[in-house]
Design a protein around this nucleic acid. Structure first.
Length: 428
RNA sequence: GGAGAGGUGGCAGAGUGGCCGAAUGCACCGCCUUGCUAAGGCGACGUACCUUCACGGGUACCGGGGGUUCGAAUCCCCCCCUCUCCGCCA
């Protein structure tokens, strides 16, 4: 949610922002919101004055003698009738305004490149060397199925497409990388969290996934709850409605959770393997801090570095890209994606997504803090992936494969695998 | 799932139709007094919106939403949450 005051002063920025994000329908919400706001502002003083009159009249009425009372009661009733019409109008206006405000996307920062989709993201840096193989490189699903680590057929039979079953050492590797991700962040001062996986609409709205993301969300209609697509949702919502002390900020959290995504509208895209699946596990870092752009920028770099540290520890080549306007989501002001080299895709593909929001989410979630001796302000929030698995298993299996189908374990992960250096048996 | 109790300001806790945006205590902040591992006195002390150059004034908010009433923290309805007991259960 944008600050209505900022919107009044500079509606062009909000409109241009929505256009840069290739969301023309949401750009139109700016003008609808401003019109409603003007109407509401015109009405408020009038309605307040009437309420004041009604209140004063009511108090007076209690002290009148019976005959005066009867006449005055009529006056009060008429006032009430007029007021209740305006009351309803005001309620409706407020509701409509909130609805339109909720549609307006966050304004992308100036350094966000123009572009319509991920093909126009801009390279920031490339780290690590893509390995030269002296044998035929196999995709992760061939290795996994040959090793008996992966079964897509039975998964589809019991759960539908875009599902998978992990077995044996791959389960252990999956767990190893996730646990390593948590440990890495705890070491860096993040507080680990085990969050709810089912959340109310307010949390989905507050983080900016609703409205708009309903189609991507599994919903338990009976209970009015939604399965999270990322723990960003419950973790960012943690302090919703609170006024935090400045001395307690920043809050740094790391959560491991299962994540669920319907992937509606992606039929025929990334159909093979572990790349795009309905259910996965993700270790996510979330920061809540004071309203300082400078601090947000610092945090943003640091959470990217945290993710890079994991990829480096896993000995995986990757690149960082600056995500273009058309590939940005509604609530983000700026986003870096990290793409890891995946031989079977012959490309760097997205494994991490680091976003800053400024106060966009905290306005929706009503997360504030009290600066030293001042009025409460809305916090800034940020988040980034640390590791998402099984997607991260793709580069792990493919980049570290041997000709016989065994997998070399990166040194830093070995402690999570009983010290083993190699997984699997020769199968090719 | 059944029965009951309850949700009030940072915390505790009073308030059952107008004198209540709300007693009192604690905490926090400012000033004064005093003095030494402290205490006492005085004052200020919620959030948001509108208005005023300013002092100030107005409105809304007592879990959320609706209703009754001239008037609701207080009465009624729905929802959410917490606690106790029973049932069921990973």
């Amino acid at each position: 949610m944008l600050d209505i005051k900022v919107l009044r002063e500079n509606p062009d920025a909000a409109r241009a922002g929505a256009v840069k994000k290739h969301m023309p329908d949401r750009a139109a919400a700016v003008d609808r919101a401003l019109a409603l706001d003007a109407e509401l502002r015109a009405m408020t003083p009038r309605i307040d004055a009437m309420r004041s009159e009604q209140k004063a009249g009511g108090k007076k009425l209690g002290k009148l003698n019976p005959e005066e009372r009867e006449a005055f009661l009529q006056t009060q009733k008429e006032l009430k009738a007029r007021l209740s019409v305006l009351d309803d109008e005001e309620k409706q206006l407020k509701h409509n305004l909130a609805e339109q405000l909720g549609l307006i996307p966050n304004i992308p920062d100036p350094e966000v490149p123009d572009g319509k989709d991920d093909s126009q993201n801009v390279l920031v840096r490339e780290v690590g060397t893509v390995r030269e193989f002296d044998f035929k490189v196999r995709p992760h699903y061939d290795i996994g199925e040959a090793q008996g680590w992966l079964d897509f057929t039975r998964a589809a039979a019991m759960a539908g497409s875009r599902n998978y079953i992990l077995f044996g050492d791959l389960v252990l590797l999956h767990d190893a990388v996730l646990r390593f991700a948590v440990d890495l962040l705890v070491e860096r001062g993040f507080v680990p969290i085990e969050p709810p996986l089912l959340v109310r609409d307010a949390a989905m709205f507050g983080t900016g996934f609703f409205p708009g993301g309903e189609e991507q969300t599994y919903r338990c209609e009976k209970d009015g709850l939604n399965l999270i697509g990322t723990s960003e949702v419950p973790v960012t919502s943690l302090h919703s409605g609170e006024i935090l002390s400045e001395k307690d900020l920043p809050k740094k959290y790391v959560a491991r959770s299962a994540c669920f995504r319907r992937e509606a509208g992606t039929y025929g895209k990334d159909t093979r393997g572990l790349y795009r699946v309905h259910q996965f596990h993700k270790v996510e870092q979330v920061i809540v801090d004071i309203a300082s752009k400078e601090r947000s920028l610092e945090h943003h770099e640091s959470i990217v570095q945290n993710a890079e540290a994991l990829l480096q520890a896993c000995e995986l080549p990757y690149r960082v890209v600056n995500v273009c306007g058309g590939d940005l989501g509604v609530p983000q002001a700026m986003k870096y994606d990290i793409e890891t080299w995946m031989p079977s895709r012959d490309s760097y593909s997205e494994t991490h997504s680091a976003s800053r929001f400024y106060d966009y989410q905290s306005r929706r979630l009503n997360i504030r803090y009290r600066p030293e001796g001042g009025k409460p302000l809305f916090c800034h929030t940020l988040n980034n992936t640390v590791a998402a698995s099984p997607r991260i298993l793709i580069p792990l299996l493919e980049n570290h494969q041997n000709a016989d189908g065994t997998i070399n374990v990166p040194e830093r992960l070995r402690q999570y695998l009983g010290g083993r250096e190699v997984l699997g048996k020769p199968v090719f």
